[in-house]
């Protein structure tokens, strides 16, 4: 656990995470950050405790909480015929390492599980490699590796992009981002990420990104195509 993480998901996002309201891709990127960040892990627990209190508050129940045992008696009768689980299932520990330049990076558990069926890396222009994960039909989820000195063309996002830094660092006009930082970018931000030392990230986009300068703009139809393909792949 890293205690010196600077950038975190907002309280609102964490709250939606613990309530189960986020789509799978977003849930996974937030869960991975929570796994790495002590303060968000504690905060998520507090938020969940609040969610539970509000959940059991009789004021929030749909109808008056009258005795409904009768309505469910056949369900109960059926359920209690199942044999119970007596011991903690032994978890298959999935470990996935990603090898970069001169070392390997152990993924947070939730990402290791998501990536356990294997990653297909693709080189894209500019020293960048990407490997997509197919988690839901609303987001584009990918690992992005930026080689040292590489730069992504100026772009903006039509929706939002959540990025978790897994190793190394990168910077843009708005700041510098290090391991375990959680960054949200949306349409207000026009940025040009640069990584001096190299960087591995996991990013979740809920709409295609859009390059805003130079020849890279020619890539926009490709970005739109890639996004559409990612979300339709699982539909």
């Amino acid at each position: 656990m890293n205690t010196e993480v600077k950038l975190h998901p907002s309280t609102e996002l964490l709250n939606r995470f613990v309530q189960g309201e986020l789509v799978t891709g977003k849930s996974v990127v937030v869960a991975a950050h929570v796994e790495l960040c002590e303060s968000c892990s504690a905060k998520a627990e507090e938020l969940q405790a609040l969610a539970v209190s509000s959940w059991v508050d009789p004021g929030n129940v749909l109808q008056p909480d009258q005795s409904s045992a009768a309505d469910y008696s056949s369900t109960v009768a059926r359920i209690v015929t199942y044999p119970q689980i007596k011991s903690e299932p032994i978890e298959d520990l999935v470990e996935v390492d990603i090898d970069v330049l001169n070392h390997s990076i152990k993924l947070p558990k939730v990402l290791a599980k998501a990536a356990s069926q294997g990653l297909k890396w693709k080189k894209v222009p500019g020293g960048i490699s990407e490997a997509q994960l197919f988690l839901d039909n609303e987001t584009l989820c990918e690992f992005i590796y930026m080689a040292p000195g590489c730069q992504i063309p100026v772009h903006t996002h039509q929706g939002s992009e959540s990025t978790l830094v897994l190793d190394g660092s990168f910077e843009d006009e708005l700041g510098e981002y290090k391991t375990s930082d959680f960054i949200i970018r949306d349409a207000q931000h026009n940025h040009q990420p640069l990584s001096t030392e190299g960087c591995l990230c996991f990013a979740v986009l809920d709409s295609p990104l859009k390059f805003t300068k130079g020849l890279a703009r020619l890539m926009n139809p490709v970005n739109r195509y890639k996004f559409k393909k990612a979300i339709s792949r699982v539909a």
Binding site: K113, A114, S116, F134, L135, A235
Partner: peptide
């Protein structure tokens, strides 16, 4: 229900 992959 949304037929999402069950890798996770």
């Amino acid at each position: 229900q949304k037929r999402q992959p069950n890798c996770i």
